[in-house]
Simulated scan of single mutants.
Amino acid sequence: ALTYGIEESVAVSLLINRFYQAMCAERRWRVEDWREYLQHHPLVSRLIQDLVWLQLDKNGQLINSFRSNEKGYFTTNEYGAEVLLYENQFITVAHSALLSSDDTAQWQAYLKVYKVNTLFDQFSASLPDIGKFKDGIIDDRLGWLMDSFTLRDVLKKLGYERDNSEDGGYFYSYYKYFDSLNIYINIE
């Protein structure tokens, strides 16, 4: 387990959030840049070991999924199969929406067997049904009942913040802003 002072802890929290946003945005790094700025960075190199990554060809097609280890090797979810990274390829943070259900299940099993505490959950969420979007609103949970504390706890775990209180101290929404995408999500 890594231990950090206050400044490092704040930096780690910010980096984890940036990796999460990179996953959501499907940010791609050229292999050369990923190696230079992430793999060889003294702090970030430790963090990237707790994520699963995707190796993409120059057209964005999936080649492999892998993890980095402390020795600088890259292995797949097939328990030790090694991955080689080449120039003119790209790296992105893995997500269940980008992998087959078999690969997702294999990674979940791998992470459990090797007791890897990932920086955030990469494999339990799926993409929402686009057919449920109406004028930018998803209302498939409209009318469901839940107590406010349960809702608060669920949304806080997902990184949402409570909106400002209105008259009488009431508030009606939670929000999350993805600055790298310039997207503001509001849940009322």
Rank of each mutant, 00 (worst) to 15 (best):
A1T: 14
L2E: 11
G5M: 10
G5V: 05
I6Q: 03
E7K: 13
E7C: 07
S9I: 06
F19M: 02
F19C: 02
Y20R: 04
Q21Y: 06
Q21N: 09
A22E: 00
C24K: 08
A25S: 08
E26I: 01
E26K: 02
R27D: 00
W29M: 03
W29P: 09
R30C: 06
V31E: 02
V31N: 00
D33I: 07
Y37P: 03
Q39G: 02
H40A: 10
H40N: 15
P42E: 08
V44N: 03
V44M: 03
S45M: 05
L47I: 08
I48W: 00
Q49D: 04
Q49I: 02
Q49P: 04
D50H: 14
D50A: 08
D50N: 15
D50T: 08
Q55S: 04
D57L: 10
K58Y: 04
N59S: 11
G60C: 02
Q61R: 12
L62G: 01
L62Q: 02
L62I: 10
L62Y: 00
N64V: 02
N64L: 00
N64S: 07
N69W: 03
E70A: 11
K71S: 12
F74E: 05
E78K: 13
E78I: 04
Y79C: 13
A81C: 07
E82L: 10
E82G: 02
Y86K: 14
Y86M: 13
E87I: 10
Q89L: 04
Q89S: 11
A94S: 15
A94H: 00
L98M: 15
L99E: 03
S100Q: 03
D102W: 05
D103R: 02
D103M: 14
A105I: 08
Q106H: 10
Q106K: 10
K112M: 10
Y114E: 14
V116P: 04
V116E: 09
T118E: 12
T118K: 06
L119P: 08
D121M: 07
Q122E: 11
F123N: 07
S124F: 12
A125G: 09
S126K: 12
L127C: 10
L127W: 05
D129W: 01
I130L: 11
G131Y: 06
K132L: 10
D135K: 15
D135P: 01
G136H: 00
I137K: 15
D140E: 14
R141H: 13
R141P: 03
L142D: 14
L142I: 13
G143F: 04
D147A: 05
F149R: 12
T150P: 01
L151R: 11
L151E: 14
D153E: 15
D153S: 15
L158W: 11
R162I: 14
N164P: 06
S165N: 10
Y170E: 12
Y174E: 01
Y175N: 12
K176L: 06
F178H: 05
S180K: 11
S180T: 09
S180A: 10
L181K: 14
L181I: 00
L181S: 01
I183S: 01
I185E: 03
N186E: 06
I187D: 00
I187Q: 07
E188Q: 12
